Amino acid sequence: MGYQWWRGVALAGAALLLSACGQSAVNDGGGDSRNPDELVFAAIPSENASSVQASFQNVIDLLQKETGKTVRFQQATNYAAVIEAQRSGKVDIAQYGPLSYVVARNTGVEATAIAAQVQEKGLPPGYRSYGVVETGSPIRDLAGFKGKKICFVDPNSTSGTLYPRAGLVDAGVNPDTDITAVMAGGHDASALGVATGQCDAGFAYDTMVDKQLIEKGQLKPGDLTTVWKSEIIAGSPVAVSDDLDPALKEKVATVFQQQANVDYLETSGVCKPGEKCEVDDAGDWGYAKVDDAFFDTVRHVCDVTKAEQCTTA
């Protein structure tokens, strides 16, 4: 059911996205590669926010400056919508999660990762999934999730679903039959669902729990207790459509690999002193160069878990 399920989910979420992006798919008439006047950059929010464009605006401005193209940002409702849009040629640059990137490649999307998110300067591009409970809960580990109502994020979320499922299996808990699963939609919603008692436990990525929700005043330090941490997960990638003009792809890659980070934005004057300097909506330092093979660890987890979310067409 895997491919057909998420493809069906994508149609509603992608309808507006696709209708707005037709010009980007027009070939300029030169050979088999495209060199459109407009590039479409798509992403989904890491939180249940109404708009994330402001968080990506610095990167959008860099892309426009370095490529000479108009860059249109499109916010999708889920990973499936981004996958479907890039498959159909309506999206040129996509911010994926690690799993959704692997699913995109597995199901015929002709796009390649060029960079991945880096949480802090000097760290490798990666992060962890957390299993959390409300502080004071009797649940001490993933084995204690059995029989409970558990918040996940999105079916195609790496840290919000895939790695948690693998962790549950390792703990002797069948994620299909031993728990009641709730798809919260966002990492913030999953964590807050636990904090408010809507779920007995749940999963979200590390900085959402440790930093973002606390900084926004939606959680207080100590509201949640982390009872499980995943292994390091490959950072969320930006993938560029393979059929773009090679010189244009190189310009896009340069932006993400060398300029889309807080240090460059501050030293180049894009970010003014004292103001919040953003490259994305997750509060990351920036991006680092990666290639497709960087995501083989995710493919390995898919192979081990046989998760439906990884099923190819």
Rank of each mutant, 00 (worst) to 15 (best):
A20I: 14
C21A: 11
S24M: 07
S24W: 08
A25S: 15
G29Y: 10
S33F: 14
N35M: 06
D37Q: 01
D37T: 00
A43C: 01
P45F: 07
Q57P: 09
I60A: 02
Q64V: 09
F73R: 00
F73C: 01
Q75K: 11
A76D: 03
A85I: 08
Q86N: 07
S100Y: 00
V102T: 03
A111G: 07
K121V: 14
P124R: 15
E134L: 13
G136E: 13
R140W: 07
A143T: 01
F145N: 01
K146W: 09
G147Q: 09
F152R: 04
P155A: 06
T158G: 12
T161V: 12
A166M: 12
G167E: 14
A171M: 12
V173T: 08
I179K: 01
G185M: 02
H187V: 14
L192M: 13
T196W: 00
F203Q: 04
Y205S: 02
D210T: 14
E215P: 00
K216Q: 12
K216I: 02
Q218C: 05
P221R: 15
T225P: 00
T225S: 14
I233G: 03
D245H: 07
V255H: 02
Q258N: 05
N261K: 12
N261E: 01
Y264I: 03
E266K: 15
V270G: 06
D281I: 02
G286S: 11
G286E: 06
D292H: 04
F295Y: 15
V304L: 15
T305H: 08
K306G: 15
